[in-house]
């Protein structure tokens, strides 16, 4: 990880330092106060960004910025950046290595979550949620509290949460308890 991190830094210093643009690393450092150094969040309700696909990060941030996706705070911050800057940060975080969350989980919830995963989610969230590509985020090893909040918001009509149709359908009949079980299952996929 450190190597990647420093590679990026060196590349930026060597390359674009003379431009008046704000570099990807300079922009991304400022995110770490909430999302952890290099996007390796240690806080259970804030998502790990490291290693997530550029397209996912860029897309979701643009949605926050444009008000197409509800957030408490992310949209207010996203509006401070150009689309190109958002993409630069997405590239920065994609290059960082994913570091799985380690949290206290309930084996019963994990087992229930596994059942639900296999019934509802397995078609898309391959590799027990660890697979990530393009607009599909890695959720295996993500923080359970973050996932719980996210899933609950998908099911709450007051929040705009653009989702694949299939995801909305799969989640619509689940209770808060079941959503939490799913979140715990994915959190356990280290």
């Amino acid at each position: 990880m450190m190597r990647t991190f420093m590679f990026v830094v060196v590349a930026i210093l060597a390359g674009a330092a003379s431009a008046a643009e704000r570099s990807a690393s300079m922009l991304s450092y400022a995110c770490a106060g909430c999302h952890g150094t290099a996007g390796a969040s240690a806080g259970d309700s804030l998502p790990i960004l490291a290693g997530l696909p550029r397209e996912y990060l860029s897309n979701i941030m643009l949605q926050y910025k444009n008000g197409e996706r509800y957030s408490t705070i992310m949209g207010r911050i996203a509006r401070g950046y150009s689309d190109a800057e958002i993409d630069a940060m997405a590239i920065f975080f994609e290059k960082q290595k994913w570091v799985s969350a380690v949290s206290q989980l309930d084996p019963k919830m994990i087992a229930r979550g596994k059942e639900l995963h296999e019934q509802k989610c397995v078609r898309c969230h391959l590799g027990n949620g660890q697979y990530t590509e393009y607009l599909l985020p890695r959720i295996g090893g993500q923080w359970s509290d973050y996932l719980t909040i996210y899933l609950k918001n998908v099911n709450t009509s007051e929040f705009k949460q653009p989702q694949p149709q299939l995801m909305k359908e799969s989640l619509s009949l689940l209770t808060d308890e079941e959503l939490a079980a799913l979140a715990q299952f994915y959190a356990a996929q280290q």
Partner: peptide, 21 residues
């Protein structure tokens, strides 16, 4: 209330992350 609760949860996680960062 749920939006305020989310922010409280984020506040707690923010603390952990800023300490870790």
């Amino acid at each position: 209330p749920w939006q305020r609760e989310m922010e409280a949860r984020y506040a707690h996680s923010f603390l952990i992350n800023i300490m870790s960062d």
